[in-house]
Amino acid sequence: MKLRNSIRQGHFDSMDFGPYLLLATLEGAVQAAVLALTALGLSLVFGVMRVVNVAHGEFFMLGAVLAWWISSLLTGTPLFGFLAALIFAPLIVGGLAAVADRLILKRLKYDPEATIVATIGLLYIIQQGALTLYGPDARPVAAPFDFRVSFPWFGYSGYKISVILTCMVMLLGVWALLTRTRIGLIMRATQYDRETAQAFGIPVARVYTGVFAFGAMLAAVAAVLIVPTQQAYYLMGLDPLLLSFIVVIIGGLGSLKGTVLAAVVIGLSDGIITIFFDPTLAKILSTILVAMILVFRPTGLFGTATR
């Protein structure tokens, strides 16, 4: 008991509103950053191909599980294993997605309803594959580096702050790819009008495969980045899937800017509303808030039309 009292005299005092807000904002920013990257992948697939990819969350999960696998194969510093995971996990996931596109989605002619069933099937296949090969346990992946950033009121993971920065760099990269390169032009052309693009000699089938693989890779990258702060688990795909859908629609279909902004709104509101309400009530309120944005602005924040 004496020990306890002496500890309480230490620097950890009550959490005032200001520091709490800072903490909730940081947490919200981490969530927003990762969500933006994941949702961007879904948004591309959705926007260009008109495919509701129910298995998108499973690609996220695969990224995390592969990160565990790759980093556990490599001995040495965690940094080395993590970098290997950051390169190879998305490549493997992208390859799988490309195969799935060629074998299944292409044959369904990207019919919106049939692809829902097919991607639900894919979800089961990937989930069971992970359960059988990886197991039901949650496993950690060591962060490439870690230091505790000591604020006057609480400590915070330095790695988490680096995740925010990395995601921002990646998002800028994707933005440059879509708006400044020929690949981006082709993708946008296909999204805008598939038939015309085909008539102008754009290999639409290959673009579709590429987009599907790229979308999956973005989810995998996001997962590799976040998994050192969480754990790899075979059922972890559902939440990113649902949140990504919300972000994509709120942001407005096909709007990169909107997707990122929506991720920030949702990440931060989830973090900050927590300050004021009982946790579950906070989740209820933030969900209603976001739903109401859509009800009264049905095309999302930046969208022109959702079809």
């Binding site: 959705f46 859908f245 919300i246 009530l281 969900t287 959702t306």
Partner: peptide
């Protein structure tokens, strides 16, 4: 029903999530 298409899909999903959380709450 103020929304259409994919927005309708997401809005209904979110209201259902609210219902689920209310049961827990």
């Amino acid at each position: 029903l103020r929304t259409v298409g994919v927005s309708f899909m997401i809005v209904t999903m979110m209201f259902a999530q609210v219902g689920y959380l209310l049961i827990l709450y």
